[in-house]
């Protein structure tokens, strides 16, 4: 039954090569911790992706309760934290997962750097990886405001003030992020939109490019 459905679709769309291309590759010995334990350093990229998936899923559940306006933002986070079943765990996963993504990505970057894996022909993949790094920092910065407590408020205020001190474009950046003269109602909705739609969209596109390139080029050889 299942096979017939698959064959019916495959006859029309030729989907087999799509997944065979992902599935049918071999993992060489020098990156396999089962053969050389020190090869665990090659796991950090995969773990970064794993935590990123946790971030996306937990974030999707958080938006079921979170209300991005200055009256209800704090109350909704408080409700989520203390009243909703498993809310504390889901919010905890998203809060601590943010730190974990940064740590894993940092370790992954160091592995790639110190094994010289960014060298030709993989320069573009390094640049895309760096863009992912900046997107992650942007997600961290915008997500920090959303609980709307004092820590969130003042960290954002200081952060945007620093950005505003840049000559010429600084005031425009501040205006774009604030949506007004102070950290206020507009700032919160803008940060919410950036955190939930703009940056994750960019992140997914960049991740797709990152993975496409690694499949096309293969993993870098042993040192």
């Amino acid at each position: 039954m299942f096979k017939n459905v698959y064959n019916w679709i495959d006859e029309r769309l030729d989907i087999t090569p799509l997944w065979r291309d992902v599935a049918d590759h071999e993992v060489p010995e020098h990156v396999n911790p089962a053969h050389h334990f020190s090869a665990f350093v090659y796991c950090f990229g995969g773990l970064t992706f794993f935590i990123t998936v946790i971030q996306i899923l937990s974030g999707m559940f958080l938006t079921m309760y979170y209300v991005p306006d200055i009256i209800h933002a704090y109350a909704s986070v408080d409700f989520l934290q203390h009243q909703v079943a498993f809310g504390q765990i889901v919010r905890g996963m998203h809060h601590f997962g943010a730190s974990l993504v940064i740590v894993m990505m940092f370790l992954h970057t160091l592995r790639v750097f110190f094994t010289g894996s960014y060298k030709a022909p993989r320069e573009m993949n390094w640049v895309v990886g760096m863009l992912i790094f900046f997107i992650m920092l942007g997600l961290g910065f915008t997500g920090y405001l959303l609980p709307w407590d004092n820590k969130a408020y003042y960290a954002t205020k200081v952060g945007v003030e620093i950005a505003a001190s840049v000559p010429y474009i600084g005031p425009y950046i501040a205006d774009f992020l604030y949506g007004g003269d102070i950290v206020g109602a507009q700032t919160l909705t803008r940060f919410f939109a950036i955190h939930v739609f703009f940056l994750p969209g960019a992140l997914i596109a960049m991740l797709a490019a990152h993975f496409l390139m690694i499949r096309k080029q293969g993993i870098s050889g042993p040192l």
Binding site: T16, P17, R20, D21, A23, D24, H25, E26, V27, P28, E29, H30, N32, A34, H35, R215, Q217, G218, I219, G221, P222
Partner: peptide, 19 residues
């Protein structure tokens, strides 16, 4: 049919199927 990716047999040693 499926094109063998460049890393399929490029490396010496005991490689292992991903899936």
């Amino acid at each position: 049919m499926f094109q063998t990716p460049p890393d399929y047999t490029a490396f010496p040693g005991k490689s292992e199927a991903f899936i």
